[in-house]
Amino acid sequence: RAAQGRAYGNLGNTHYLLGNFSEAIAFHKERLAIAKEFGDKAAERRAYSNLGNAHIFLGKFDVSAEYYKKTLQLSRQLKDQAVEAQACYSLGNTYTLLRDYERAIDFHLKHLCIAQELGDRVGEGRAAWSLGNAYVSSGDHGKALGCARKHLEISQEIGDKN
């Protein structure tokens, strides 16, 4: 049964990489059920992330947000800060897609805080970029300018010409 769970997860990932998002979702749901059966929180967390990602490409952003929130909750339970940062980043982008800029800003700020805490300059740069765009969308150009400056500073520091 445990191996079956892993096989479902691998099938879900393979369909995802092939662009078969509905099939990927079906397999990841099976994987999720087995992870729950075993009380395997790490596998459950991975399934939520994979389900959130697949729903993005079906345009079901609201469903993705719910899965990413479950990822976030489990990452905190598992005390995995890198995964927590990733979940906040995904939620920030998903709420931008949903045009809910207030929530998007909130999650990008959380991502920024964790990236700073972890000394992750690449993550911090990405958070500043995303946050700046969310501020522009919400009409707060003053804060957007501060973020763009931060993004430029970090891009120069890490040698990211693009």
Partner: peptide
């Protein structure tokens, strides 16, 4: 899919490009 093609925000487009290849492995 039409909705996905017209995404205007650069940082979101970049995130989605990365996401296409992002899987949580077993």
């Amino acid at each position: 899919f039409q909705r996905l093609r017209i995404i205007q925000v650069d940082s979101v487009r970049r995130w989605m490009d990365d996401l296409k290849l992002m899987t949580e492995c077993e």
